[in-house]
Nucleic acid binder design. Sequence first.
DNA 1: AGATACAGTGTATGTCGTACGGAGTTGATC
DNA 2: GATCAACTCCGTACGACATACACTGTATCT
Lengths: 245, 245
Amino acid sequence: MDKLPVVVARMWGLDPGPRRGPRPGLTLDLVAAAAIGIADAEGLAGVRMGSVAAALGVSTMSLYGYVASKDELLIAMADAAAPDPPEPGDLTWRDYLTAWTRANRDFLAAHPWLLEIAPLTPPTGPRALRWLDRALSVVTGAGLTAGEAINVATTLSAYAVSSATLLVAMTGTVAETGPEGLAGYTALLGRLVGPGGYPGLAAALESGAFGAASDWVEDADFTFGLTLLLDGIEALITRREENTS
Amino acid sequence: MDKLPVVVARMWGLDPGPRRGPRPGLTLDLVAAAAIGIADAEGLAGVRMGSVAAALGVSTMSLYGYVASKDELLIAMADAAAPDPPEPGDLTWRDYLTAWTRANRDFLAAHPWLLEIAPLTPPTGPRALRWLDRALSVVTGAGLTAGEAINVATTLSAYAVSSATLLVAMTGTVAETGPEGLAGYTALLGRLVGPGGYPGLAAALESGAFGAASDWVEDADFTFGLTLLLDGIEALITRREENTS
DNA sequence: AGATACAGTGTATGTCGTACGGAGTTGATC
DNA sequence: GATCAACTCCGTACGACATACACTGTATCT
């Protein structure tokens, strides 16, 4: 029942706090921020208990006063790295969901290491849940049921993740595997597909559709895919309204 | 230019092969299969160079004759775990894409550890590319351009990943974090959200929409989200046909 | 036959996460 | 206001793991 990771309670400020003994010299937020700084600079592999502690000027083991394990540190990082979701203002549901999804993708792309952590666990941090909350409010406000809203939010969130993944892969931010991003990938596919057996893929390669790397950066393709989703949602909303009225 | 991981070439059978010396006692496929067996049984954490080697009855270091590093082993696993994509038969594009996406989700859910590897790198293995190829063929056959088809395939693939992630999280296959799956997660959210500030989420929780775990298993929600996407695609195809005719 | 390239192995090393116990510090209690 | 308990921080040690290196035996080519 209360088996939740200690760090989750602490992220929510639900920690009773010590009543005796020395005041902690740091906070969970500071620890997470230091770790995020390292992850942004060196990638997730650079985040070690030792390196984070060194960045904070404390010993490795002192971090274990704030997180119970490295996994908990990653959980805290994932939540702390998320900004606040866009304000609904007086946008239509469609415009808001567009802004929401794009902002979601953007902060994932800005912290590529999030893609190695975030998708794996359901959201539990205050920031992540605020994103979910906003989307649910807007979607239910447009006339869908709570269950449908959850599906919509989940699907859009997944789209943001996949877009960010592609964007990162294309622009080669991670900068590891040999050739620089898309060009190398396309060339690689060309060589592999050659032998035959992949007619659809070969045709796509020949048409040069893979070559438009700039599209991804300038997010023409992002908008394209998002439109697919929003059109589907719009159709659903329209259907709902007809049945209700 | 040819900085591609050695294991990729080997996956495609492009390995020149030794001309002298003893014949290798194993194949990359055997190594990958052994690793997959361990991952299925114990999770990805159970996959160690030592444990895989032990399962094959060889020494740890002999694996390095087949893969250059553990990362390469994971790449090989990710491709080898994928089954062949469904046959198009004489299905409509809509029916085929439904089958494709469901089959995609199913094999991801059957090997949850794939979710920790696959989304991070663009597909390069023969099996993964065959999935892509099939989707591209069907979508271009329905009248979309190659570029659009890539987007559609990417989006559907992302949806399969997100569905599988949710399914795994809900059914709690990984079986780590305390309470069993959805019930615990819902209860946790209820406690955290209580204080206020999350109106949309609180409403969704009260409506019980989170409680419908069976829906995810019986994939009512999967179909729901997929319909959103397919409706969007259908709208696009219709638009194309009108412009063309 | 002799040389050569290659598969498989054992040992050693470096990197990490983290368990354990100690020392110093602060607030609560009588 | 003295004592005690809770608590933070730290140093050390250990165990797990990936992998570099050097070596041995074997199969093919000249």
